[in-house]
Simulated scan of single mutants.
Amino acid sequence: MTPLAALTEGASFITVPVPLGDRAYDILVGRGLIETAGTRIARLGARAAAIVTDEHVGPLYAGLLAGALEAQGLRTSVVTLPPGEATKSYASLERVCDAVLAAKIERGDLVVALGGGVIGDLAGFAAAVARRGVRFVQVPTTLLSQVDSSVGGKTGINSRHGKNLVGAFHQPSLVLADTALLDTLPVREMRAGYAEVAKYGLIDDERFFSWCEANWQGVFAGGPERDEAVAQSCRAKAAVVVRDEHENGDRALLNLGHTFGHALERITAYDSARLVHGEGVAIGLALAFRFSAALGLCPPSDAERVEAHLSAAGLPTRLAHVPGGCGTVDDLLDAMAQDKKVKGGALTFILARGIGQSFIAPGIEADKVRSFLDSELDPSRS
Rank of each mutant, 00 (worst) to 15 (best):
T2M: 08
D22L: 06
Y25H: 07
L28M: 12
L33M: 07
R47N: 15
L64N: 03
P83R: 08
P83E: 13
E85Q: 09
C97T: 01
A103W: 05
G108L: 06
L114A: 03
L114P: 00
G116Q: 02
I119R: 04
D121G: 12
D121V: 02
A126L: 12
A128D: 09
R135Q: 14
R135V: 13
R135A: 10
V139D: 11
T141A: 05
T142A: 15
L143D: 02
D148F: 11
S150M: 10
K154L: 05
H161R: 12
K163M: 07
N164E: 06
V166Q: 03
A168F: 01
L176C: 03
D178V: 10
D178L: 04
F209H: 15
A221G: 13
G222R: 10
G223C: 05
E228C: 14
R235L: 14
K237G: 05
K237Y: 04
A238Y: 03
V242G: 09
V242H: 14
H258E: 05
L264W: 11
A269Y: 10
S272R: 04
I283P: 01
G284E: 02
L285E: 08
F291R: 01
G296M: 08
L297C: 01
D302G: 13
V306I: 08
L310R: 04
A312R: 10
P323G: 15
P323E: 15
T328N: 14
M336K: 12
T348V: 05
K368A: 06
V369Q: 01
D378W: 00
D378S: 04
